[in-house]
Every structure is written in structure tokens, then in C-alpha cells.
């Protein structure tokens, strides 16, 4: 089940390209969210290139796995990964957030091939993912649902309502991956809304709790494999990440949550993301 060295190197190279392209796109359009997009890069890559059973030739296939980007503002990285996976042309990235685009500011299942659920308002994604998981179980498809949470997202009470419900309904085909970069729009999560002992909270609700380095593609794949060995409980993977990962001056900085990239910053970022 493990990645070959060759495959691992390939995926790491893909991630480097995705980061560079997303920074390019966001600089080009002068709007959008760099911090969270760079943070979620390996999580989305691990899902769409290794673990999630999806088919770009048949995006609506009923028994496909579902991916819900609860932290919808990281849409630029989702779109870049989907494009690479063949859901739409990579060139379309430059239309992001422009009038008449299929690539809306936040993910829209109505507009974009490959997007399973529209998100944007935080907090509602995990509940919807749970409904998907239970519906797919009723249909006996064996499909799995991956929900990607963020720091701001888990401030919302609905996330914890979903946590209770997922345990009650034994949704062991639901995997939450927490892109846990510990920064939100206004500052460090510890300052804006301290989260306390996050693993203990999930465990107290009855979830199976796994942890990994959220920028180590191999570790992510291993964690997802473990999560996909169901035991009657929903699973959360606490993916330790860095907001703005890969661009030194954006790393850990809430200021880069949703700031347009100026020319000087772009040149620095591009230089850092250039080589391998």
C-alpha cells in the first residue's frame, strides 16, 4: 500500500508545481486566498492522486468517493488539483473569480466538474458530508466521504453537532481531515478562539483520531489507509500543517489569509517555489 520512492517523488513534484501555479494564478487575478490554499496542497493531492476513487471521465459517477472542502476559501488549490486530474483544462485557472467563470470564488458543485459539494460558509461542510456518507451507505455503494476541515471552520458549533451525530449513526465511511495550521483570518487560532486539546475533544465525542504531518504526502497516504479500515467509528486525521506553506514570508501569517499578492511579494514567492 505504501508509495514507491518514485511515486512519492512524483507527487512531491506535483505539489511544488501546484503551489507555484496557485501563487501565479492569485497574483494574476489579484484576489483569492493564498494561505489556506498552500496549507491544503498535500491533503488534496493525496486524496485526488492516490486515495479518492473519482473519475474525471464520469464526474457524476454515483458510487464515487466524495471530497468536501469544508474550508471552501482554499478553492484555488482544489481547482488546480482537479484540473491536473483532468476534470477541466489547466488553462481555465486564469478565469478564477472572473465574470462568467466555472471557477467561482468558493467551490460550486453546480459550476465546476469534480466539485462534490458547494461550500463557502464555514461550519456546514462536515454535517453535509455526514449526510452524504449515510446516504451512500444506504445505497450500499461502499463509497467513502472525505471532509477537509480548517481552523476557522471548527469554530462553528455545527461542526461539533456533526461530530455527535456521526458517532450516533456509526458513520465509519466518513473521514474528516483537519488541515490544522493553527491560524485563521484574524490571527493565531490560540488567540482568536483557543481550541484546547483537539485530539481529546474528538476522542471524547467517540471519534477515532489519527495524526500526521500534513505536508508529508507519504504520511498522509498512510493515515488515509488507516482511516479506511473501518471499525464503526468516524475518523479524523489531524494533519499538522502550516498556513502559507512553501512561501517563507507567508508561513504562519494570518495577513496572507486572503490578501492580494503584490509584485514584490510575488517575485520573492516565485523564486522560492522555483526549483526543487
Amino acid at each position: 500500500m505504501g508509495l514507491t520512492a518514485e511515486r512519492k517523488a512524483y507527487l512531491e513534484k506535483l505539489c511544488q508545481k501546484f503551489r507555484r501555479d496557485v501563487v501565479d494564478t492569485l497574483y494574476g487575478i489579484q484576489t483569492g486566498h493564498p494561505g489556506g490554499s498552500l496549507s491544503v496542497c498535500e491533503i488534496l493531492t493525496a486524496l485526488y492522486f492516490e486515495k479518492a476513487r473519482v473519475d474525471s471521465a464520469d464526474p457524476q459517477k454515483p458510487d464515487r468517493d466524495r471530497v468536501v472542502l469544508c474550508k471552501g476559501h482554499a478553492a484555488p488549490m482544489l481547482y488546480r488539483v482537479l484540473a491536473e486530474r483532468g476534470f477541466f483544462p489547466v488553462e481555465e485557472m486564469k478565469t478564477l473569480r472572473r465574470l462568467n467563470t466555472r471557477l467561482q470564488g468558493h467551490p460550486s458543485a453546480e459550476h465546476t466538474p469534480g466539485v462534490d459539494l458547494s461550500t463557502g460558509p464555514l461550519g456546514a461542510g462536515l454535517s453535509a458530508a455526514l449526510g452524504m456518507a449515510l446516504g451512500l451507505r444506504l445505497s450500499k455503494t461502499g463509497a467513502r466521504v472525505y471532509a477537509i476541515l480548517g481552523d476557522g471552520d471548527v469554530n462553528e458549533g455545527m461542526v461539533w453537532e456533526a461530530c455527535m451525530s456521526a458517532v450516533k449513526f456509526k458513520a465509519d465511511n466518513l473521514v474528516a481531515i483537519y488541515d490544522w495550521n493553527k491560524v485563521q483570518l484574524d490571527g493565531r487560532s490560540a488567540d482568536i478562539m483557543p481550541q484546547g486539546d483537539v485530539p481529546a475533544k474528538f476522542k471524547a465525542f467517540g471519534w477515532r483520531c489519527l495524526s500526521c504531518d500534513g505536508h508529508d504526502i507519504e504520511a498522509l497516504c498512510e493515515a488515509i489507509d488507516k482511516a479506511n479500515d473501518p471499525d464503526g467509528r468516524p475518523v479524523v486525521i489531524l494533519a499538522d500543517t502550516v498556513k502559507g506553506k512553501g512561501v517563507s514570508f507567508m508561513e504562519g501569517q494570518n495577513a496572507w489569509h486572503g490578501k492580494a499578492i503584490d509584485e514584490a511579494s510575488y517575485k520573492r514567492a516565485a523564486a522560492e517555489l522555483e526549483g526543487d
Binding site: 454515483p62 466524495r66 458543485a109 462534490d116 459539494l117 461550519g123 456546514a124 461542510g125 454535517s127 453535509a128 458530508a129 455526514l130 449526510g131 452524504m132 456518507a133 449515510l134 446516504g135 451512500l136 444506504l138 445505497s139 458549533g157 455545527m158 453537532e161 456533526a162 455527535m164 451525530s165 450516533k168 449513526f169
Partner: peptide
């Protein structure tokens, strides 16, 4: 009973779960 889901007093969660069911054809 297998198609009935009592979510407790969590109306927002219930409504969003319902949407999830709808998105997979229920």
C-alpha cells in the same frame, strides 16, 4: 427505521445532513 435519522436538537446540522443525503440522490 433504517431511513429515519433523529439528530437530536441540532437543527442546523440536520438541515445540512439533509443536503448531504440529497447530493447523493436521496
Amino acid at each position: 427505521p433504517e431511513r429515519f435519522f433523529n439528530v437530536g436538537v441540532a437543527e442546523a446540522n440536520m438541515a445540512a445532513m439533509g443536503a448531504g443525503f440529497a447530493s447523493v440522490g436521496k
